Simulated assay, not measured.
Amino acid sequence: MLRIFAGLALPGQIMSSLLATMGGIPGARWQSAEQLHLTLRFIGDVDRRVAEDIALALGQVSVPPITIALSGVGQFESRGRPNAVWAGVRPQAPLAALHRKIDQAVVRCGLPPEGRAYLPHVTLARMNAASGATDLFLETHAGLASPPFTLDHFILFESRLGHGGASYTPVERYPLRG
């Protein structure tokens, strides 16, 4: 089985600015530069044949290059406790359109559609029950912003879980054109 997802790699200067914000939450597992990305569609565990079908189907996705910027920070919660902090992106509409097209390609390969609402973001850290409060981090970085940057391709990644978190290996790269 392969654990895969479609995502966008970030430019080096954007990764550097995000890495500079990381800290201030005791016990948080901060993402490394290699882990920073913007997920378009988590696909999950599939066998190799289905992964190959998905890789071919994603080649049919057509949208123009996307220009976005970082905008603010937030957190996801589970059972009333923060489990991740993230950087937001704007505008969200072009990313949502790309997400829908990727989701449609995945569904054509026999998988169910995405069940969750899509919120474009870049995960900065993951927390567990022993992690400290996120309030100060969220306050300090509420105004996080970057200059606009253009993304001209998306990537099918393989994700491998390990003791230090997940590692991501690019499987296929797809140009954004349209």
Rank of each mutant, 00 (worst) to 15 (best):
E114R: 13
L144V: 15
S146N: 12
S131N: 06
T39V: 14
Q75R: 15
L138C: 08
Q75I: 01
L95F: 01
W30L: 10
P170L: 08
R173T: 08
G143V: 11
G143W: 05
L18V: 01
A33Q: 12
L98V: 01
A84G: 02
F5S: 08
W86R: 05
A6H: 06
V85E: 07
P64A: 12
A166S: 13
P11V: 00
P112L: 07
G24Q: 14
H121R: 12
F149K: 07
E34H: 13
Q13L: 03
F149Q: 09
A130H: 13
G24T: 05
G44K: 12
A51K: 03
H163N: 08
P175T: 13
A129M: 04
Q31A: 15
R126Y: 00
G72D: 01
R29Y: 05
L70R: 06
I102E: 05
L151N: 00
L161E: 02
V106T: 02
V122Y: 04
Y168D: 11
R79F: 07
S17C: 11
I25K: 03
V50S: 03
R160I: 01
T134E: 01
S146T: 15
Y174N: 06
T123N: 08
P113T: 04
D152V: 07
R48S: 14
M1W: 05
R90M: 14
V46A: 01
V46S: 02
M15Q: 15
E34M: 06
R29T: 11
Q13V: 09
P113R: 14
P94R: 02
M22Q: 15
L70M: 14
G132P: 09
P82S: 04
P91V: 15
T140C: 00
P148C: 09
L151S: 01
Q31Y: 11
L36S: 07
I102A: 06
A133V: 03
L138P: 05
L70W: 02
W86N: 09
V122W: 01
A142S: 15
G72W: 05
S16G: 07
P175N: 04
L8Q: 13
I155H: 05
F154M: 04
L119Y: 12
H121N: 06
D135H: 10
